[in-house]
Design a protein around this nucleic acid. Structure first.
Lengths: 113, 113
DNA sequence: AAGTTACATGCCCACATGGGAATGTGTCAA
DNA sequence: TTGACACATTCCCATGTGGGCATGTAACTT
């Protein structure tokens, strides 16, 4: 098997920086594709493709308004990421950084370079 | 360009379910590769490859002990994900789910099917 | 009806992937 | 020294990718 499809879940969909940018922009509110195209400075087909991926994992919803399509954020699928991350929250804190620095030093000495 | 390398950042490294499992296991403490191989039920080379990716993005650290290599979690790179996620926290909450349901209904009526 | 606008979809490519299988490397044991 | 053990690396393949480009489709305008 190759790499999992980007449409597999929120983890894979959000691994792409442009798709994260799109979600950032949509956090401000509903917007048509052209707005996103301008703000991102990307080709329109590219944006449409990214939006398709986001749609397939449920991170955005669409609404037709005349010849425009308004995209809207749906952050709920991000919860799976947030929940997976929670047990690691403590280990991410600054305090543990200091511990890690000490360990790094010990390791460096151990390597004896 | 193709998809970004898995070693590009924590986002891409963590998109792979097995790598998330490995981090889950390492959250309990330092462990040799063989332990992980048994717990994951994967082929040893596969585990080594995944560990390599995690190492390259700084999510794990290694320490040699005889003929074994002890891997250790370093959760710090996860912070970039956690921080990107933070602005969406509110939008993930249950309360907004209810709002979304209402919006879904309105949208369904609007579509007039 | 014809043109334009706003998107979506299709085809192409270079590229990195996850897994399988085999092999390499370093450490300990007998 | 020879063998077993613990890992890492290499080669292979099928697959899905992001981007560029061209085309399709629906809605609005004139």
């Amino acid at each position: 098997m190759a790499r999992a499809a980007t449409t597999t879940d929120a983890f894979n969909a959000v691994a792409e920086p442009r798709r994260r940018q799109i979600l950032d922009l949509l956090a401000a509110g509903e917007r048509p594709v052209n707005d996103l195209v301008e703000d991102l400075g990307l080709a329109q087909p590219l944006v449409s493709k990214h939006l398709r991926v986001l749609r397939e994992v449920g991170l955005v919803q669409v609404r037709d308004e005349g010849r425009r399509r308004l995209y809207r954020l749906d952050a709920r699928p991000l919860r799976s990421i947030s929940e997976w991350l929670r047990p690691f929250e403590q280990a991410m804190s600054e305090r543990f950084d200091l511990m890690d620095d000490v360990i790094q030093e010990l390791k460096a000495q151990e390597d004896g370079r």
